[in-house]
């Protein structure tokens, strides 16, 4: 039950982001997380949404360039030092982080962090060995 992130090419132009979020809103799509990586001229918008398939087809039909990327969503205790052990595992395992960001959603004292790393398989097995929970799609309310 892999979680997929939708990555959208963003031209650095006034109103581009407003345009996309309006499209999502008009189509009753709920965002779980949003993150942007940018250069001076363009950027990549990264989204976790409740209906990734629907979002993909709507944005494609509107002419956006996008891709779906598998990511790992890790449950992290929402308290000081909660994230540190996860990052330590990654460092000790010799895994590279391409990028990471957090979900809006919280659950019973836990926060969720989205990770895109160089080696998903190794990362998830390390998490399992250390009793760190990975969130699945149901838990995040992802339906399609």
């Amino acid at each position: 039950m892999t979680v997929y992130q939708i990555s959208v090419f963003l031209e650095n132009r006034t109103g581009q982001l407003a345009e996309i979020t309006k499209i999502l809103g008009d189509n009753q799509i709920d965002m779980r997380a949003i993150s942007i990586a940018e250069t001076a001229d363009y950027g990549v918008l990264r989204l976790i949404v409740d209906q990734p398939q629907k979002t993909t087809s709507i944005l494609l039909s509107q002419g956006f360039v996008l891709s779906q990327t598998p990511v790992v969503v890790v449950t992290v205790p929402d308290q000081p030092g909660g994230l540190a052990p996860v990052l330590q595992l990654i460092a000790d395992g010799g895994i590279d982080i391409e990028y990471m960001y957090s979900l809006f959603t919280h659950k019973e004292g836990n926060a969720y962090m989205v990770f895109r790393v160089s080696d998903d398989e190794k990362f998830t097995s390390l998490l399992a060995q250390n009793g760190i929970a990975v969130a699945n799609r149901q838990e995040l309310g992802i339906t399609d």
Binding site: Q5, S7, F9, E11, A37, E38, T39, Y42, G43, V44, R46, V65, L66, S67, T69, E98, Y99, R116
Partner: peptide, 12 residues
């Protein structure tokens, strides 16, 4: 123009 083939989630 950006194309789907040349696009990546990785800015780098």
């Amino acid at each position: 123009e950006m194309t789907p083939e040349n696009f990546s989630d990785n800015l780098g």
